[in-house]
Design a protein around this nucleic acid. Sequence first.
DNA 1: CACCCTCGAGTTCA
DNA 2: CTCGAGGGTG
Length: 737
Amino acid sequence: MADDTVIGREGARVRWAELVDAINAARSEYYQADAPRLSDAEYDALFAELVALEQVHPELVSGESPTQTVGGQRSEMFEPVEHLQRMYSLDNAFSEAELQAWLDRVESGLGEVPQLLCELKIDGLAVDAVYVDGRLRTLATRGDGRVGEDVTFNARYIPAVPQRLASAAGRPIPPLLEVRGEIFFAVADFERINAEQQDLGLPAFANPRNTAAGSLRQRVDRREAELSAARASSSGDRGVAKIARMEAELARARVRLDGLRLTVHGIGAVDGLEITRQSQGYEVLADLGLPVSERARVHESADGVRDFVAYYGEHRHDVEHEIDGVVVKVDEIALQRRLGETSRAPRWAIAYKYPPDVVRTRLLDIPVNVGRTGRVTPYAVMEPVRVAGSTVAMATLHNAYEVERKGVLIGDMVFLRKAGDVIPEVLGPVVEERTGQERPFVMPTRCPECGTALRPEKEGDKDIRCPNTRSCPAQLRERLFHVASRQALDIEGLGYKAAIALLESGLVADEGDLFVLRPDDLLRSPFFTRDPGKGESGPQLSENAKVMLASIDAARDRPLWRVLVALSIRHVGAPTATDLARAFGSLDAIAGASVEDLAAVDGVGPVVAHAVHEWFAEDWHREVVEKWRSGGVRLADEPMDVGPQPLSGITVVITGSLPGFTREGAAEAAVALGAKVAGSVSKTTQVLVQGDDGGRTSSKRAKAEKLGVPVVGPDGFAALLDAGLEAALEHRLEENA
DNA sequence: CACCCTCGAGTTCA
DNA sequence: CTCGAGGGTG
């Protein structure tokens, strides 16, 4: 944002010129290329800065400023259509404060608190449709707000755009009706189209909006004409092949148009309809067969507006289409008229914009990390940037092939998002921003921690590893940390820092020593001690150290599968460990088993069987086991008679948190009754248990609905444990929540 | 052998 | 959440 205390008059003039150039360039790219260099958020930020600058320095404002015009230039390919009534754009609010400021302005302008209509701001493409005597006359893009591009010829392939109006309530059809709306793809449809696009070897579309824009602006009519011309004049094999190709392209174009959706959110010129309120207008449009949003709500107060904004901030991704904000409109048309318009936007409406979920930031470096199993993973270190509610500075890049596939160079500006709103993901470079100073990532050939030459475990693996499993400091650290993890022995107080302290102080040489630690030993490390209090002499064990010791003690008596997981045997995670523990009963039985014995276990194949067998063949591995044994760790399961297994053969997936259970506790309760608890929904899943997801999007839920897998809530889970699957399904949740 | 699942491993921030 | 890769199936 411009800051008038910092920028002087001359600086303001320079900045103003920069902003005008950048905005004009972005506008022409946006309208002509369908592949804008600036994201909407960036464009909006530039625009907001320009508006702010012009408020402080009104002398700068001239006719050429983008604040005085709307939209961009028209592409030459399309026939111009003049809108009957001008299509305004909306002013934006980027914060609650700016929204509040608008509410205050409206209130003082009217001298009363108006009813406010809130609706989702669909991230699509604005269009204008004119119906004369109930028939679609023109469909046009927004263009510069006065004149748009005629895409009527495509409309007959877009089922979402009615060709004729018809009133369900027997209302007379208005002689003239101009409506405005948003053309868009549902996210799911976009993903399907994009997958098909990539299958054909064509470049992927950046996002649903650009795809919608590209789809709507196809010259289907021209292609049809070319095709029939080719048919008329074709001869020979080449002609046949060409026609086939043209037919395929045309078919693809039509399929894309078929998937476009429309939501009408405005009325332009009208004759023969009585519209008193925006919301009542929507009802009339819906009655005439035009698609309007079902999510629009009228609120009596600013609080209601804020709640609406907050609700969709949380549930942004639960809606079938992309949303970039909320539009708030004064509902009553008479009040809208009283407020009027500025040169570019109405005063009676505002677009509150959510923070973007794809941002750009500088890729500063690509270091590598050495994991528990020696796998070497490159990760991106970036200029910290706020995205989807938190500040991100790092993201995994998985492996060297991924770095290459994404095409990022160190020093690049990169696109960053949060996959599933949680895990940061680098999408790719902003190629246009390259200066030539960027350098490629080079995968190291030696372990950054111990210098050992790195190599793939076997020929053809994409991952490369540090083979120094025994004494690579990174692997020791990660393994020790892993022993304490929730999936393994679940030792409280032994976190990452404690693991490092234990190793660096020499208190443990490796994970084998963990169970022979004595409290007195810990006094030697400052990490585990605190200063003596009154009446105490010498350092004392810290609270954390006591917690850790008690928890280590408790860990001596864990089920066998947890011990197996804690040993960091390749390919043995919790599910496989559970299978092995059930099949063999004790660690000694597993250690003594042949490869064939091991491979006989369901879910264990030759690779895993080999890995387990090899693990026990290593001397120092067996030493770890012996140290644990002598340290009192139980290495066998009590032969316990399992209770009744009413849920055997049933696969359950659990998502969200269930009251009265921890995440693992819920799974264990189901497993104890014989159920199989899977991590993701597939067609073999009998039921998805949906707990409280804190308002977050559940991808599992979406998948379940797609596959027709029944979804139940917490009470369904209780019924499942109590009375079985049949009873649980009595508690099925509605498909569309 | 091609497919679909499932598992393993690494991972971000508050 | 992601990719890679193992296991099982048809």
